[in-house]
Amino acid sequence: MIEVTSLESQPHIRVGTVTPGMRTKWFPFWLLLPSIVVLLALQVGPTLYSFYLSTTRMRQGVVTDVGLENYGRILNMPSFREALRLTLIYAGSYVILTVLLGLLIALLLNRRFKFTGIYLVLIFFPWVISDVVAGTMWRWLWQPTYGLIQNWVTANLPAFGEHIYTTAGGAMFIVVMAAVWRGLAFTTLVCLGALQTVPIETLESAALDGAGRFRRFFRVILPQIRPTLMVMVLLASIQAINSVGLIFSITNGGPGGATKTAAFFLLETGWRNGDFGRGAAASVILFFINLALTLVYLRLMGRERK
């Protein structure tokens, strides 16, 4: 980009275009102001407010300052620890499955045979569908008595049981499956984008040197797309940790709390039960988990650049 230093002596303003109207010191500020106001009021503000709320307790409309008590309470609750464990299972299986399958689909699409573009469009349908709607559809397919898939499993794979939806492991399986169904499009697209940046000449010369398919993938392609894969793992983890719409609509946390992830715990405590203090404390804990993931990622990216 061309940058022309302003002729007037405004030490720290350098403008891109040389016109009187746009050279005023405050012009860019006015353009940014609306965005900054909205973001401060409804993004930064609420986050700070949740820090404050997490140190209070409200009883019959009276707010008392309780310091870090809410955190101690929550961290000692077996249900919260269980929620963290379930989050790890849910997010972990979601990330592994979407990344591996997404990479597989992208590699196949990248062979660029005729008519494969249509598959990308079809795989994207689930991605534009709301998680509540998607959850309803999957819940219907696994409905214990009338569900199409459940009936098929009962008839053909009886070892898996007749009421998968009502077992703890089965419910988690269904929720993960629905999440993968919705999320696969995203990882596929990101992988495809990354694969298209691998120069074809590098691959051709590797092939001439006698490198086979697998060798080319692990020695040439994988190192090239590794940074993008890392971004994707991070984004997919954040998505899984914070999304709860599917769980609401498929299992509502059940059976017996088997799908109550940390995100579900947060909403149940802070909103359904109206315990703002503890709900906010759970929000802050989740906020720091997200922040930690982001920092790990930035660190890795930094190392990658060196």
Partner: peptide, 16 residues
């Protein structure tokens, strides 16, 4: 700010 998930702001937004 993209890294702040909408979820963790819900309880404060509800209060506000």
């Amino acid at each position: 700010l993209m890294m702040i998930p909408g979820l963790t702001n819900l309880i404060p937004l509800y209060r506000i």
